[in-house]
Structure formats: structure tokens, C-alpha cells
Design a protein around this nucleic acid. Sequence first.
RNA 1: GGCGCGGUAGCCAAGUGGUAAGGCAAGGGUCUGCAAAACCCUCACUCGUCGGUUCGAUCCCGACCCGCGCCUCCA
Length: 467
Amino acid sequence: MPIRLYNTLTQKVEDFAPASDNTVRMYACGPTVYNFAHIGNLRTFTFQDILRRWLRARGMETLHVMNITDVDDKIIRTAVQQGVSIFDYTKPYEAAFLEDMATLRLQRPEKVVRATDHIGEMVSLIQSLTEKGITYESDGSIYYRIAKFPEYGKLSHNDFGGMIAGARVDVDEYEKENARDFVLWKNKKEGEPSWDTPIGDGRPGWHIECSAMAMKYLGETLDIHAGGVDLTFPHHENEIAQSEAVTGKPFARFWIHGEHLIVEGQKMSKSLGNYYTLRDVLQMGYQPEAVRYLLASVPYRNKLNFTFDGLKAAVTSIERLRNFELRLKTDKFPEGSNADADKRTAESLARFEEAMDDDLNTANALGVLFEFIRETNTAMDSGGFNAANVAPVVALLARFDEVFDILKPTVAEGGLTDEAIDALAAERVAAKKARDFARADAIRAELLEQGIILEDTKEGTRWKRKA
RNA sequence: GGCGCGGUAGCCAAGUGGUAAGGCAAGGGUCUGCAAAACCCUCACUCGUCGGUUCGAUCCCGACCCGCGCCUCCA
């Protein structure tokens, strides 16, 4: 079965394959770097990560471009206020964003590109639009006349036809012919950064950057354009208008939108005090994997209710998965092979993949895996699992972790190394053997303080890091 | 008003026209120097409400109630 993805454009789940060769050309709207990313932003980027990882797991190559919006009204306003250049203002947030991505184990897209490095491309695109008679100028700014693009509204499934006639003046100081017309190039304002170009001294509007950068790196028709739901309109609608008016070709074959995250049942906002960055959550003592697991566990088209109960549940779930992996790798199983065990593993792998193929149904995929783990644990307890059955299970877990990536613990800086833990664990075993339980318990307590849990099993003592 | 999404056990959540996955929590048990950890078992006659279609509906249709998103910057 092919991978099936929901396409906002057609409002249907469709079979997906790249248009040409084996490379998926995808563009994902990245962050505006005026602040630290919050967990809501990160939910969207986690969904994009799951998407790209699953495409790759299914044997495709990805050419994934993510933009960094490093110029917009908010950035300019704040930078001017602080008396720094927009570059100096955005630079640390851009770095922080890339750091957060790495912390959350979000794979780096093949290309991460800045808006301000592509002013020339944007200007060319605006010039092409002007040549086609789609733009108009007002007060030194250039606008897109949506009346010239009859398909306007096809992505967000809105009919704007009736509104074209009712020309209004926008509330800001720019004159527009139609309320829906949007700015491509903003005239320079005194005291604000600008670029002196053939179309004037000014700065780009928000929408043009994505069209320009996407087409520069990925060609006129992308396989996938992804982003948060809120971008569907107007941002993505405008991208379509800009790009297709110039090329006459579909801008993207698949439009994939990730739902938002809410916090404790409410929209996240600073005024409600439920606004969290990744850094905030990690400071509370949670591991990045727990955040990643929680963000990935709800299918991307559903709203995700981020709660601390949910985060704790994620921690415990990860432990269950890791415990199983640990058992698989440390238990001694009888020689030979059990046919039922292999059959169960093969079927679970197939069901896991089928769930992921089904529009990235991560909740279902996790269900398959947990059910498999319970059944396999039972088989292990009752002797229905042999040494030769281990390898396929290891492969199944690897397949799972290829996309979820939560099995490997994050080792804190300055924490105990594996070798140091091994040594202490061995010392405790010796103390136990000598029936020096006081010493043994002391070591156990000491390790626990460092987040290391010791487990005495039939095969001996093993240890693990707390999730 | 327009477009769209959702209401499944204490919480999160999958799902199908044929009688409810999974995770967490809770209760019980196995194991153990004690403990911890681990593992196992139990846990929705019921899927917002009311009608309809059907041999049969949580899943299809209609109405209604509730919550939410977008239509303005926003992941």
C-alpha cells in the first residue's frame, strides 16, 4: 500500500508519491524568529519531522526546504525599539530555534533558508507578476490584485467572488483596491530597514518570500507544501496566487496542514499563563523525548491537548518501551526459534507500517506496538520466545524508532557515564553477594539520585536511565 | 454570516455497518534480602442528544445541543 496523505487542496486522503524520480520536494513554512519557539510551534515542526522521516523510511529521498522568516513587522518594530539591526535581533533566536530542533531530535531539513538572503528572488518574482499585469502600485507599495486570479480561494475553500466588488480601504496607511488584495512589496518607512531594488526602496511582504524560495530550490511544482493550519489562509492561498499566476502550473501537489496544540484545554496565550517554550518545559525536569513523544503521539490533523498529566503519561510510556528493549537485549532466551513469535513480529511490523502509511496515524501505530510488546512479554514469560526470535524484534523496534526516535535517552551534561554506572552497579552486586545490604542499598540510592534505576532480574542486575 | 474540525471510560486516544485498539491513572497478582523496578490480570452492555435507514449503527442520513479553528498577524 502506498502512503496516503490528506490534501487540503482536494479535502481528500490521497495516495502519495513524488512526481518525478524518487525525491520528495517539500517546502515547510518555518518560524518567524522574533522570539523563542513555543511548544505549539514545535508541534508543527514535529509533525513535519514525522512526515519527512516516514517518507524516508519508505525509501524516498527528501529535498526538504524550510524558511526562516527574519524580516517582518514585528521583528522590525522590536529591533527599532531596541536600537539594534534586525540581523542582530533575529540571530540569537534563529540559533535558539535550530538548537531546539536538535534537542527535540527534529531532523535538519536539507535546506534551511533565510528570507533576507533571497530579496533578489522575491524582486524578480514581483517583476514577473507586474509584467503579467497582476500588480498595482499605491503609495510606493506594490499589491497583488486578486481579481486577476480567478482561482483565488481554492485552497481555503472560500468563495471570494462576491467580495471583489466591495472595495474598501484598509485600516493601515496603505491604500488597497480590494480588501483582500495583499502587499508584495512595502514602501520604505523612515527609520526602518529597507532594500534598494529595481522595484523601489522597501521590503518584501510576508507571502512572497515563500513563493520565491520554494520555487528557487524546488522548482515550479512542489510535491508537498506543509505548515500549520492557520497558514492555510491567507498565507498559503496567497502563495498559490503568486506562484501560479507566474508559472501557470500548480504550485504544490499536496498541501498538508498540521493542527494546533492547545494547553490544558485552552488556547495557549501569554495572558492565560499557559505559554510554554521548550526551554520552560525542560527546566521543569522533563526530558526532550517526553515532549517529542507527546507531540508525535496524537495524529497531526487532530488538535493536541498539551497537559502535564499527558507529559507524565508520555514519560511512563517511553519507559515501558525502553524496558521492553532492555529486556530484549539483556534476557537470556532459550536456543532455537518459535514460529508464533516470528509471525507476531512480522504481523506487527506490517500493521505498524500500515498505520503510518494511513496519513501518519501515529496513535494507531503506537497501539500496534504496545499490543505487540504486551504479547511478547507474555510469550517471554511462558517460554514462547527464543534466541532466534530476537533479531526481527530488534528490527521492528528500529523501524519504530526511525520515526519516533525516543528510545535512546538524552544523557545530561556532567552526568554519570555508562562506564561509571557499570562500575557502581558491579560494586553493589559484590556487596549484595557479601550480604552487605547497607552498602548495596546506599549505592542503589546514590544512583537513583542521578536518575539511574537498578533492576535485579533472574539474569542479574541491569540499569537504565529514567525517562 | 461563510468555510472547516471535533464531542469514545477518571485523563489522552485509535477505530469499524456486525457488536469498542492502545497509553496513563486505579485495583489485584507474580517476582524479590527488603525495596525499587519489571511483568501479568482486571478496568466503556457503551461511543453528545433525539429521530431515520438497516436483520443489525458508535460508525450511514437528518435535526438538535456543546466545544473549537479560520475568515486580521499567528505553527
